[in-house]
Simulated assay, not measured.
Amino acid sequence: MTVLKLGTRGSPLALVQANMVKDALAAAHDIACEIHIIRTTGDRVQDRALAEIGGKALWTKELDRALLDGEIDLAVHSMKDVETIRPDSIVIAAMLKRADVRDRLVGADSLAAIREHGVVGTSSPRRRAQVLRARPDVSVVLFRGNVDTRLAKLAAGEADATLLAAAGLDRLGRDDIGTALAVEEMLPAPAQGAVGIECRADDAMTAALLAALDHQATSRAVRSERAFLAALDATCHSPIAALATIADDVVTLRAELLSEDGGEHVAGDASGPDGETLARDLASALFERATPAIRAGFGG
C-alpha cells in the first residue's frame, strides 16, 4: 500500500482537517497517510498580530520547507491562511468541499447586543473594521491563539465578545458556540471555510491522487476570491472581505474593502462564467471608487 507523508500544523483544528484529508485519500484510493506535525512560527508567536511579524507566511513557510525538502508529500491548510502568491514549486492540488463560510459572534447574541463602549477581541483586520463600522463605540483588542485560547480569554473577561469562523467550530464539534452572523451583515474573509491540499509541482503522482479529492465548485469559488486578493495586492493588513458563489455555472462574487477603522468602505458584486476574470474586474472597479483611507490598505 502506498503511504503518503501528510504535513500539518499541530492545532486541534489543523489535526481535524488533516484527518479529513487522510480519510478522504483512504476512501478514494485505499492510500494510507502518516501525519507529520510541523510547528509554525504563527503557532509559536501568539502575542502579536500576524501582520506585524510576517503575515500569512508564518502559517506556511515551515510546511513549504518540509514539502520542498521531501520530508512530507502533501500539506493541508486552511485556505484563508495561505498567501495569495505561492511558490512556483508548489501547487494547490485540491480543495475539500467548503463548510459554513460565516463568522460566529461569541459573548453576545448580535453586534447590536454588545454593551455600549464594550470590548471585542480579534486579530483580524477585516473583522476589526467590520465591527467598528457597525459599532464605532466599541474598542477592539488583540485576540490570537486557537479556539480554546480565545474562548479562555473571553471567559477571563479580556473582552465582551469575540468572533470565530463557523467552519472551524463545526469541525471541532463546537457548533453550539456563538451566534452565526449572516453574510449580509458580515461578509467573510476570502477562502473562509475551505481546506486546501498542496504538493510539489513536480510530483505528478501525488497531484493525480489528490485530484480525486477536489471539490470543483469550492475550488472555482476560492480561486475567484484569491484572484480578487491578488488583483488588489492585498496583505494581512488589508481589511477585505469576499465571497464567491456558483449557480447554473455562473460565478457571483461579492466583495468589500474597508478602511482600517471601519469608517469608510466600498462594496459591490459581479457575475459571469469566468470567476478569475470578473474578480480582477471587480477589484479594479472597487479600487477606483475607494477613498485614500481605504486605498492605504491595498497595493491596487
Rank of each mutant, 00 (worst) to 15 (best):
T2A: 10
K97I: 13
D160I: 03
D202S: 11
A189P: 02
E264W: 00
A152D: 15
A267P: 03
V222C: 01
I31N: 02
L213Y: 00
P87K: 06
P292L: 02
D249N: 12
L253G: 03
H215F: 05
G121Q: 11
L105Q: 03
A49M: 06
T149F: 13
D176T: 10
L164T: 01
A99G: 13
T235V: 04
K61S: 11
P273N: 08
G297I: 08
R133M: 15
G145F: 12
T235K: 05
G10C: 00
R133N: 14
R171T: 06
Q17E: 15
D248M: 06
A180L: 09
M205K: 10
R133I: 11
L278G: 08
T2W: 06
P190C: 02
S139H: 15
D202M: 09
K80L: 13
D47H: 15
A290W: 10
Q17H: 12
R98T: 08
I114K: 09
D269T: 10
D261R: 03
L229G: 09
A14R: 04
L105E: 11
E288N: 09
R9N: 11
T218V: 02
Q46M: 14
G107M: 13
S219A: 03
D202I: 05
A26N: 13
A93V: 12
D30F: 03
L209Q: 03
E256G: 05
D202A: 10
R127G: 06
D281E: 14
G118V: 13
G297T: 07
R289I: 03
R133A: 15
A212L: 09
L25Q: 04
L25I: 00
I35H: 04
A27W: 04
E288G: 08
A279H: 05
A180Y: 05
L111C: 14
L169S: 08
A242D: 06
A212F: 09
E225K: 02
V131E: 14
D170G: 04
